[in-house]
Design a protein around this nucleic acid. Structure first.
Lengths: 199, 199
DNA sequence: TGAAAATGCGAGCGACCGCTCGTATTGTTC
DNA sequence: GAACAATACGAGCGGTCGCTCGCATTTTCA
C-alpha cells in the first residue's frame, strides 16, 4: 500500500512532523488542528493528507521519530558505562541530564509523552516511547537493585518513568536561572526513591 | 448579580455538579460536553445554563466543592496531631491514606487535579485545589524540615504535590489487589524525598 | 389571585473540527 | 514529449461543540 515517494515528498513529511511538534508543544495534541499543522508547514490541508492518512498517523510518525532520536542520544550518553558500579549521583547525571536536554530541545516531546489522560488513539501512538523508556529503566534497575522481583522491577520502572514525566514540565517551564535547582530536585526525588529501594 | 435561588434550584446545582464529576471522570474535561453533562443530570442544555454561565464555571464550582470536602477530610484526619514529632511512616499514612481514599471516592477529582497539561481555563478553575494542597504541604514541611528557606520550602511543596498528582492515577487505576503495593510505592517516593531533604 | 421571578425545555446558531474531492501543477519514466 | 504518478491546492462536507433564545411551567409573595 506504500506509494512511491519523491525526494520532495520525503522533505514535506519531515516538515509536517516539525510543524506538528511545534503545534503539539504550543497547543497540546487536541487543540492542534490538522489545518493549523498544515498552515505551519506552509501547505494546504489537503496536502497533509497526501502523506498521512489521519491526525493520529502524524502523531505516531512523530513519536517514532522521537524514539529514534532519543535512542541515539541515550546510547551516546551511556556508551559502555558500568551501570552497576557507578556512583548514584553520576548515574543520575548520566540519565537525567541528556533526557532533560532532549526535552528542552524537543518541546513537542512531552505533549506526546507526559500525558496521563491521553485519548486512546494518542496512547497507542506514544506507546513505543513509553516502552522504550521502561525498557531502559528496567535494565538499569536490574543492574542496580539485583534483589528485585520481576514484578517489583516493572513496578519500580513505572514509578521512575512516571516521576520523570511529572517533573519534566516543572523543569522545562521554569525560568532558565531556576532550572538547575529544579533539575536538582528531580534527581533528589529519583535518588531518594532508588536509595529506599536498595534499603 | 446573584439571582435568588429556590431550594429546587440549589438541588439542581448539586445534581449538575454530580453529573459533571461523573462525566469528567469518565470522559475527561474536554470530551465531557455540556450537553452530555446536562443529559446525565436529567435536564436540558438550556437548564444547565440557568445555573452556570459556562462550562468553565461548572468546573470551578465543582473544584470549590472538592476543596471544601477535602479540607474537612484532612482536618478530621489531622486533628491536633503533632506533625513535627511524628514518625515519618505515620506522617505519610496520615496524609496519604485519606487523600487516596478521597480520590477513590471521588473519581472526578483527578480530572480537575491531576492534569499536567490543563487548558488555561481549567488551570484557573483548579487553582484553588492546588493552592489548598500546597498550603497544607508547606505547613507540614515547615514543621518537619525547619532548615528550609522559604523559596526551598515552596519548591519542595510543589515537588511533593506534583509527585502525588502523578502517582495517584497509578493507584486508582490499579486492580484492587495491587493497590496496596502501589500505595506503598507512593509513600516510598514521598518518604525518600523527605528523608533526602532533611539530610 | 395575580404579577413577577425562577425554573425548564430543546431546536438550533455559529464556530471549529478532521477530513475529502475535484482539479491544477510538477516530476518521473519510457 | 506523451503518459502517468506524485505533489499541491482550498472550498467545503458532515459532525460536534459551547451556548442562546423564545417560550412554557412552576413557585414566591404581596
Amino acid at each position: 500500500m506504500e506509494r512511491r515517494r519523491q525526494a520532495r515528498g520525503e522533505r514535506r513529511m519531515a516538515e509536517i512532523l516539525d510543524a506538528a511538534a511545534d503545534a503539539f508543544a504550543e497547543l497540546g495534541y487536541e487543540k492542534a488542528s490538522t489545518n493549523a499543522i498544515a498552515a505551519r508547514a506552509g501547505i494546504s490541508p489537503g496536502s497533509l493528507y497526501q502523506f498521512f492518512p489521519s491526525k493520529e498517523a502524524v502523531a505516531r510518525a512523530l513519536a517514532d521519530r522521537f524514539v529514534a532520536d532519543m535512542r541515539t542520544a541515550h546510547a551516546s550518553a551511556f556508551g559502555g558505562a558500568d551501570v552497576a558500579a557507578m556512583d548514584l549521583g553520576e548515574l543520575l547525571d548520566r540519565v537525567v541530564d541528556p533526557l532533560v536536554a532532549f526535552n528542552l530541545a524537543n518541546p513537542g516531546f512531552k505533549a506526546l509523552f507526559a500525558r496521563p489522560d491521553m485519548p486512546a488513539a494518542l496512547a497507542e501512538s506514544s506507546q513505543p516511547i513509553q516502552a522504550a523508556m521502561l525498557g531502559q529503566v528496567e535494565s538499569i534497575l536490574g543492574a542496580r537493585v539485583p534483589g528485585l522481583s520481576p514484578d517489583g522491577r516493572a513496578r519500580s520502572a513505572r514509578v521512575l518513568v512516571r516521576i520523570f514525566q511529572a517533573m519534566t514540565p516543572l523543569v522545562t517551564a521554569a525560568p532558565e536561572e531556576e532550572r538547575p535547582a529544579e533539575i536538582a530536585e528531580l534527581k533528589r526525588v529519583l535518588g531518594g526513591y532508588l536509595t529506599s529501594l536498595s534499603a
